[in-house]
Design a binder for these strands. Structure first.
Lengths: 332, 332
DNA sequence: TTGTAGGCGTTATCAG
DNA sequence: CTGATAACGCCTACAA
């Protein structure tokens, strides 16, 4: 350490003085710190990380940065990370399993202290993440989640959220609600369908299988379903979508076909993306609090690091709320 | 290196074998690689970075991740980074100068190989970045840019873009165009105003100072200007905004006041945020190609690293294009 | 073709 | 209270 040389003292002492180690006398602390400033000393964080095998860095993997949806989760993570002296190394999976796997290894090889991941749509095998979890590296799952009960996860209130939306649609007088889901493998698909079914049961409404549709989130797969429903003798009078983006595709398609929203068909989404506020008509949706999901995920990581081996809640559910806009307001 | 021990050979040989060093015999290379796989060997990237003082990491600082605007630039950076074996360490300045300064130091102390930065609105002093540039660390500026000519920058065609928009508004029959800018200190403010002025001069239209307004991007400062214009005897018949977000604020405000867009007042933005496509009426804007700005920035970093001390173009301008939607279409 | 030695900057351990 | 020494894992000279 140059600053030690300049002062004729050992690097050890300098290091300790800078860290306010109790052993060091006040006078040396002061003079060392002055010298540090004078020499514009900046510790080499790489060397420090290497020495303590602690990088003060978390890795974050999200599907993409194209929409506000995941980026605001990343924003939440980064915000809390920075408040707590952590850096953020980020990757995008582009919704591809193989990218995700590669990213996980890259981050682990880079010795991140923990991994915060929102899995890709394709991901159904979680070995790539479980190996590291078993080695004791904190892994936090957010939004789209590993069903494995060992993994700490931060999720939206999927079932309750869907229940709120469906209940609302029924209140608006809808009699036949179509639901557009993601792939069957996703937990969010499963949980939101559950909410849909719960409310139907509660009101003793018979469920029509034709009203339950799975997609891979692509535009075509979504439109295909809508068209199929439009061709039916008894069309649905409401469509509940797995995401706001999906809902926006649906709204545009319906408008193109000159179908009145919500008069003929009400539409609701899930997530509360910024977009939903801007589109015409405004989109009714469930606000999952994306930014808060990110913040909480990072907080969970911090808690786990502090707790070390203490008892830890595995699943953290983020409270959201129904956002009613014109796309579902049949009664004004 | 454990794998050396396991095979009874030196770590050096192992390292070289894994790196396909020409000195090593094919047979040892093969056996070492087999052993590496068998033992699931992963190099410690932290140690490697430390040893060669090369982290294979770039730091990126953006104002925030709330809107798609900056996040898609970050997405572009990360995409190209990952294609070239670089990692991305990211920070948000939240549009605050002090945060930005702190982030720069953090990233530099973390020994990133380069810094890609989009300055905060507040930033007018660039010393925090120039120190490191002078030390030879590649610094790339994107979108909002350091006026210092030494810095490599990747920017939108601000002046030309503004020219296209203004020309278009005039074509639509607008006679009096208000322009809402950002803070005076920003280069984008200056350059887009220049485009505005250029086209006015070209058509020999006198410029009214009252039609040129500066804001700090806040909702209130924007609405205040619009209200001032609305109170005038001769209102503008078009408003050109420094950003799409600004334009959306304007559109909403005008709609609240029951002013017809574009019939009474046409509105145009700049940037081509996703939002502009969703709002009603669709927003006319100039597409700056956010993602490409990010990609190019990373590419410029890579070029600089390869070129080492070769001659380098300082300013890279990304071609964009006019996006005409209903908010400005007076003639149908 | 392979091995040995040293260093990267920081911190922890142990000794004084 | 302070200092010497070793260690973190990898890589590059230099030596054999």
């Amino acid at each position: 350490m140059d600053i030690g040389k300049a002062m004729g003292i050992s690097a050890t002492t300098v290091s300790r003085a800078l860290h306010d180690h109790p052993d060091i006398s006040l006078s040396t602390k002061i003079s060392v710190k002055e010298m540090a400033i004078a020499m514009d000393y900046h510790p080499n964080l790489l060397a420090r990380s290497f020495a303590n095998s602690q990088s003060q860095t978390v890795g974050v993997i999200i599907p993409n940065l194209e929409a506000t949806f995941f980026s605001s989760m990343l924003g939440g993570v980064q915000k809390v990370a920075s408040q707590n002296g952590y850096k953020v190394l980020m990757c995008q999976s582009n919704e591809e399993y193989l990218n995700e796997v590669e990213n996980v290894h890259l981050l682990m090889d880079s010795r991140v202290d923990g991994l915060l991941i929102c899995h890709s749509i394709e991901t159904t095998n979680f070995d790539h993440v479980n190996i590291y979890r078993k080695r004791g590296i904190p892994i936090i799952n957010f939004y789209r989640v590993n069903k494995d009960s060992e993994t700490i996860s931060v999720v939206a209130k999927n079932t309750e959220g869907a229940e709120l939306v469906i209940e609302h649609l029924l209140n608006q007088g809808c009699k036949k609600i179509g639901i557009i889901l993601g792939p069957r493998s996703l937990l969010i698909t499963e949980e939101r369908l559950k909410g849909y079914l719960n409310i139907h049961k509660k009101h003793l409404i018979e469920i029509e299988q034709s009203m339950i549709a799975y997609t891979d989130y692509t535009y075509n797969s979504i439109i295909e379903i809508v068209d199929r429903w439009l061709d039916m003798k008894e069309r649905p009078d409401a469509i509940f979508c797995i995401s706001d983006r999906t809902a926006i595709y649906v709204i545009r398609h319906l408008r193109k076909k000159n179908i009145q929203i919500p008069a003929e068909i009400a539409v609701a989404g899930f997530g509360n993306d910024l977009m939903g506020e801007l589109i015409e008509p405004g989109l009714t949706t469930y606000d999952v609090q994306t930014s808060k999901i990110g913040e909480t995920s990072m907080q969970m990581f911090l808690d786990q690091v502090k707790n070390e081996f203490g008892q830890i809640t595995k699943v953290h559910t983020i409270e959201g709320h129904l956002v009613v806009r014109e796309s579902s307001l049949k009664q004004k």
